[in-house]
């Protein structure tokens, strides 16, 4: 008994850490999950049912559109940029500068990014003014910047550099010998990409795309600062649910919406983890 107790003693050192996470991470998550199935302390499925209502479905669809399109834009453009980076000298200044810049820009979201684009393409933004004065075209239009198209453009600003950061290790893992061996065995450049590099990079590319998808889907601050009215996407719908107390006649709708968000992100991240595991086995 005493021996066993003594052996368990060091585990007590974990108590502060676990306690803290319990209060500020687990309990909030549990509150969301439980709250989604409750109303005034009574169990109910009404909140979850409300997720099927028109406005919520619309917001979810828009959210999926924003996430998917920025993930694809980010993956393709970021993938090209990452490829441009690997063709640089491995320890050259260009490569270092680009990777550092990407590390910084991938973190640059939120209010500041929204205002950067308002200053650029807003009603009196620098580019809007410039184009209006020189070409006579009104880029501002009817305010697309503050709706889904604008969100897609602004999100691309952090999605592209994020892609560079997550995809670069996979590109770096492609060895020169593979290209040379393929060439020796008679492969043209196209055949090399089609049969060697393509299949090798595909899981990492898809995985990175999924990560970008989750990143966009979970983003809130940028959209919140950009769009002050209306709920074009799911995170903004949650904002409304939290600030207006009762939305669609349901006090606990916010919990159900948050749960929906957890589920989508969890599915996407599982796919990501599976794909990453596959690549890391190859590119050892």
């Amino acid at each position: 008994m005493i021996k066993a107790a003594r052996r368990a003693l060091p585990s007590l050192g974990m108590v502060p850490f676990l306690g803290y996470l319990t209060v500020f991470l687990f309990i909030p998550t549990v509150i969301v999950v439980v709250g989604a199935f409750q109303d005034d302390g009574r169990p109910t499925l009404d909140n979850v049912r409300a997720l099927g209502s028109g406005p919520v479905l619309h917001a979810l669809r828009q959210s999926l559109v924003v996430s998917a399109s920025t993930a694809v834009i980010g993956a393709v453009v970021g993938g090209l940029l990452a490829y441009a980076v690997v063709t640089c000298k491995p320890d050259g200044a260009v490569r270092r500068a680009v990777t550092s810049a990407c590390g910084v820009l991938a973190q640059f979201g939120g209010v500041m990014l929204a205002f950067a684009f308002i200053a650029t393409l807003g009603f009196s933004g620098a580019v809007t003014t410039l184009v209006k004065d020189s070409v006579g075209v009104n880029l501002y239009g009817s305010g697309w910047l503050f709706d889904v198209p604008g969100i897609i453009l602004v999100y691309s600003y952090f999605q592209i550099p994020l892609m560079v950061i997550v995809f670069l290790p996979a590109l770096d893992g492609i060895k020169v010998q593979w290209r040379e061996a393929a060439e020796n065995l008679g492969a043209s450049t196209w055949q090399y990409w089609r049969q060697v590099a393509g299949p090798l990079l595909l899981p990492a590319f898809l995985g990175s795309t999924l990560l970008l998808f989750a990143n966009a889907f979970a983003s809130y601050a940028t959209a919140a600062a950009l769009v002050s009215q209306g709920n074009p996407i799911l995170p903004l719908f949650i904002r409304s649910a939290l600030t207006s107390e009762i939305l669609l006649g349901r006090a606990n709708l916010g919990y159900a919406l948050a749960l929906e968000m957890i589920v989508v992100v969890a599915i996407v991240m599982t796919g990501y983890a599976l794909l990453v595991r596959r690549t890391s086995r190859w590119l050892r």
Partner: peptide
């Protein structure tokens, strides 16, 4: 070009296609 030379080459290491 290398891919039309008909040469078989064995590299130092790591040249097998991992997939």
């Amino acid at each position: 070009p290398a891919n039309r030379r008909d040469m078989g080459m064995v590299f130092q290491a790591y040249s097998l296609f991992p997939h």
